[in-house]
Each structure stands twice: as structure tokens, then as C-alpha cells.
Amino acid sequence: MDIDRTTTAMLTGLFDPTNAAAWELFDRRYRSILIGFGRNCGLRENDAAEVAQETIVRFVEEYRAGKYDRTRGRLGAWLVTIARFRMLDQHRRRGVARIERGESAMVDLDDERSVTAAYEAERRQGVLREAIEELRTRSKTDPKTIQAFEMLVYHGLSTQHVATELGMSAHDVYLAKSRIAAKLREIVQRIESEYEEAPGEWDASGHRPSAGLGA
């Protein structure tokens, strides 16, 4: 395991404003999760991106100010809490704009369980995304094998179809799929340990960052 990629190492690095690597890792890892989370909460793409940006900046500020105590809750719970306040803040700010534009100003942020599940799903997607990227760019897996996997999984093509397309036997396609599954499992498992965020229930409202309450 690359120790520098763990959440602990990343958080340690974030204390140092000059540690660009830690910042980049944090940003790459959580921005897309937060954008997806915002989308699941009903935000438009641009609004979700804005909330993600504000959440990341706010988190780093609070973190450097020593407000994040890891013993009191997971990083994800902390981020969700900030993001939810950012969303409410955006609703307040956008309320009038939405009035002017005549759009529905209603997003359901009340259901704690839904919000938690939405974040957890996005976090998991982030892990899977990272795993795919690693499979494509850093593993030594045969490109044709990856291609077979993508045709099967992303494009929903049949085994026979893939075999014909790629000039492989159906059996080889099965094997390719099986190998990719094993490889991805290994990568996902490692990344999950880097996140140190086991999936499951947690209380997103239990740890309210004071500065996250916003204006």
C-alpha cells in the first residue's frame, strides 16, 4: 500500500499549505463525490459544483484551524455536514434568484437517511472510479482484456458479441471478465482501506462543524 495515499497521510499533508500533492489527492478524491452528492440532492450540475468547491475550501479552512477531530467522526460525515449547510446556504441565496427565474425552489434535504445513503453511494462510486482509472493507467493488464470488460459492463454487450468484435473466443471473454473482476476487487479493497471509510450507517448530523453553519 502506498502510504502517501491513505486518508491519514493526506490529512497530515493538508496541514501544510505548500503540500500540493495532498491537496490534489483530496480534491480529486472528494470533489467528484461531493458533486455527485449534490446532484443526488437535486442540485443542477453547476450548483452542485459550486457547493463542492465551497465545501472543500471550508473543510480545509476548518481542518487547518484544528476543528476536525477524527476521533469524533469520520471524514465523510464531516464533509456531508459542511456540504448540507452549503446547500442550505445556497438555497437561501438562490431562493430569490429562483423566484426571479420562476423555478421550483424545493429540494428535500430533510431525510437524514436518504442524505447519508446518497453520500455513501457517491463515495463508493468515487472508489470505483479511482479503481477503473488505476486499472487503465497503472496496472499492466492487457488492453484487450480491459476492452472486453468495458464492452461487457459499460456497453452491456453480450459475451458472444464481444468475442466476435475482439476476435476472441467466448471462453476467453469470460476469462477476461473474471480476471478484471479479481483485479478490480484487489484495487477497490486497497483504495477502500486508503479512504478508511467503511460503508454503512453513520450519523451525518452528529458532528456539526461550527464554521460550517455559514451566514
Partner: peptide, 13 residues
Amino acid sequence: FLGEFKGVLIAPT
């Protein structure tokens, strides 16, 4: 397991 990857975007934004 692989089904989980169906919804994963390579370019999420």
C-alpha cells in the same frame, strides 16, 4: 461486483 461499475462515470463532472 462489476455491476457496481455500470453507473460509474469516467468523467464524473
